[in-house]
Amino acid sequence: MARTASFDRSIVVRAAMDVFWSTGYEGAGIADLERATGLRRSSIYNSFGSKRGLFDTAVEQYLDDVIRPRLQPLSGPEVAPGAIVAYLEGLSAALADPASLSARSGCMLINSAGSPIGHDAAVAATVTAYRSELREALGRGIEARLPTLDARAADRLADACTGQVVAALALARIDSASASAAIDTALALIEAA
């Protein structure tokens, strides 16, 4: 008879997410995951199937706990005119705060895209879907902020701002000043439109 799990799955996945976020999939050893989660290797494998299964679950939790709450004001039924600026300023503040995991580690998905695990088709699809979700949210924010802007100009602006956000997230862990400058550029583009 199999034993039932006697741990809080969301707490375990969050702890694993922090390890993957900080060190990447390849850098996260099973011993690191055991230490962070408090689970033994056998429990990790019994509960998640593999290190990869735990990673995939952590990515979903990252999207649900970190990404989507930040994008929610841009994704809901009503988008306020100031939501895009609030999003960008909030992201800039998070990337500037040395105590935040975002400032120390950037974006878990962008980091994964640039590592060997990024070549995996499922991971690549998740990163692509995230970028599309980000682009859609920023586009809605731009439409709310600049309702009279020509549709083609709004699309180009949303693409440019998405590129700046992705650049900021990629740079956060190695060059916080450049990450902040990328967000400032997105804000300036919106202001100039």
Rank of each mutant, 00 (worst) to 15 (best):
F7H: 01
S10N: 04
I11M: 05
V12M: 01
V12I: 08
S22Y: 02
G24P: 03
G29K: 07
A31W: 05
L33R: 02
R41D: 01
F48A: 12
K51G: 09
G53S: 11
F55V: 13
F55W: 12
D56C: 13
T57C: 12
A58D: 14
Y62H: 15
D64T: 13
R68L: 13
P69T: 11
E78C: 09
V79C: 05
P81V: 15
I84F: 09
I84V: 15
V85T: 15
V85R: 15
G90K: 11
S92M: 10
A93M: 13
A96E: 12
D97N: 15
S100D: 14
S105P: 07
I110G: 03
A113H: 09
G118D: 11
H119Q: 13
D120M: 09
A122Y: 01
V123P: 09
V127N: 06
T128P: 07
A129H: 06
A129I: 08
R131T: 12
L138P: 07
R140V: 00
R140D: 04
E143M: 08
A144V: 10
R145D: 09
D150V: 07
A153F: 01
D155K: 04
D159G: 07
A160Q: 06
T162H: 00
V165Y: 02
L169C: 09
A170N: 01
I174W: 05
S176A: 12
I183Y: 01
A186C: 00
L187R: 07
E191P: 02
